[in-house]
Amino acid sequence: MSEPIQPGRPQAQVETGSRMQRLFDLRYVIGALLGVYGVVLVIRGLLDGPEQLARASGISINLWTGIGLLVVAAIFLVWGLTRPLGIDVEENID
C-alpha cells in the first residue's frame, strides 16, 4: 500500500483535435449511411403493393421510414456543412 503514485500520463501529450476527428467527421458518415438507407426505403416504399401494405397493418412503413431517415440524414449533413470541424466555440473549464 505504499507504492509511489503514478497518475495517468499527462494529457498534454495528446494533441488537441484528435487525428480520429481530423480524418473523418462522423456527421458525414451518419448522414451518408442514413441517407442511402432513406433513398432505398423511399424507392422501395413507392413500389410497395397491397401485399406489403397489408403486412404493416396498412401503413406505408417503408415510405415513411425512408422519409424519416432522409430528414435525419439531412440534419447531420447540414450540421456538418455549416459548422465544420476546427471552428468549434472554445469552452471555458473551471
Partner: peptide, 8 residues
C-alpha cells in the same frame, strides 16, 4: 418477422 415488409 410478422409485421415488417422487405426494406424496413
Amino acid at each position: 418477422g410478422q409485421l415488417l415488409p422487405e426494406g424496413v
